[in-house]
Design a protein around this nucleic acid. Structure first.
Lengths: 217, 217
DNA sequence: GCCTGTTGAGAACTAATGTTTCAAAGGTGT
DNA sequence: ACACCTTTGAAACATTAGTTCTCAACAGGC
């Protein structure tokens, strides 16, 4: 995990430039591109700052490779190429909810993945996906086969759409979350359906729903 | 538009390699990377083939720039960086349907755009997006604020989800398309709702629905 | 003061990488 | 066979771009 202190102005400027350069040109900048854009007098100064950004986990440098800079996101994952999100399992009424294993990302391959808009991972960091099975989420306007993008979290702000696990009922559900003193109101997205009320202890929040994706064909 | 003839094996292999290289490494390959991967004896042969791929619109080359190869999609747009899809307007019951202007992509800026998974544009080429306004598409499990990704098309295969314009009713709708001899059956995604029947002349197909995206936060 | 680590500037060095040249081998149609 | 075009090959060339070296300004700590 990168330190979250704010960087010196010049170093922040370099980082910002690299990101915008990649977005505009589809490939990383050279040391000299950075030098010109950030008004730095010498390539060695750029190199020096890149070295520090590398050490502190903001980016990766491939030695002796032209344009070999790779930006890393907050969790140290490369964010250059296509963001692929692990589909960690299926979600269905009555079925147990797979855990979002915070580690194991690098080793445990052999997972289904789904591509998402880069903006999502840029905004939210590490994400997971669940494929919805069956019609049980129809009250949240979520169909069989839809993919739900999740940001793991134990907590949520009032009004946010969450993945909730109801302990007693042994049921997973996607609802809007409203804490009300000692109990919790779980409101379906479809406003014509009635909410569920449950005691706070009975409700485990597993993550926030960041996006829902439905594909055809 | 690129010619759609199938390419010679070696040239196809080069194209495929470039694409996978970019996906794996986040930057384009060098001429020599291609040479090794595609088992070509000389860099000049690579250069020769790249020149032809460039001429035929499969890719772009930035002269004198290391790794300056940029892949183009079927409509000649760069597909390296983030695929942004134009949000051409809103769709709502009773409102006219904005046209998918096949041209004007480069010039007419100042459009809202939405990022989508690169895989979508890779599979379907040029796409457009509509933001759904109101609850009128609720029978398709599409909520207010959802974004519908459209591939422009005048025709559709049976069972595909389409953007249909009902001339008499002056109404846009998202339904599954089933032609039945002289009439058309438009089936809501929600199987508990009943289909609409209309004469074939009354139904204009504007495009196929490729994906539906819902965002939170 | 004196040291030490950080940041900066300028230039030179070297490896990486795009480009060019020249030649030859395969095709295809006449 | 001939002319013509595409494709392949090997090597050299030129530029780009990563790296390193030297020197200097500056700040904090002892």
């Amino acid at each position: 995990m990168t330190t979250n202190k704010k960087l010196p102005a010049r170093r922040q400027r370099i980082l910002d430039f690299i990101q915008s350069f990649i977005e505009e040109n589809g490939l990383p900048p050279t040391v000299r591109d950075i030098q010109k854009a950030c008004e730095i007098s010498s390539t060695s100064v750029v190199d020096y700052n890149l070295r520090i950004l590398n050490r502190d986990g903001y980016l990766n440098r491939r030695p002796d490779v032209a344009r070999g800079i790779e930006l890393l996101d907050d969790s140290g994952q490369p964010m250059s190429s296509v963001p692929k999100v692990q589909v960690v399992g299926r979600i269905a009424a009555g079925a147990p909810l797979p855990a979002f294993s915070t580690e194991e990302s690098a080793s445990g391959q052999e997972f289904d993945t789904i591509e998402v808009a880069p903006e999502l991972t840029r905004r939210h960091g590490r994400l997971y996906a669940l494929e919805v099975q069956g019609q049980s989420m129809i009250d949240a306007l979520i169909d069989d086969g839809d993919v739900v993008i999740i940001k793991p979290s134990e907590r949520a702000e009032p009004g946010e759409m969450v993945v909730a696990w109801l302990k007693q009922e042994e049921e997973a559900t996607l609802k809007k979350f409203y804490p009300e003193s000692e109990q919790v109101r779980l409101q379906p997205a479809n406003s014509s359906m009635s909410p569920i009320f449950s005691s706070a202890e009975n409700v485990d929040i597993r993550g926030k729903v960041v996006s829902v994706i439905r594909k055809f064909g």
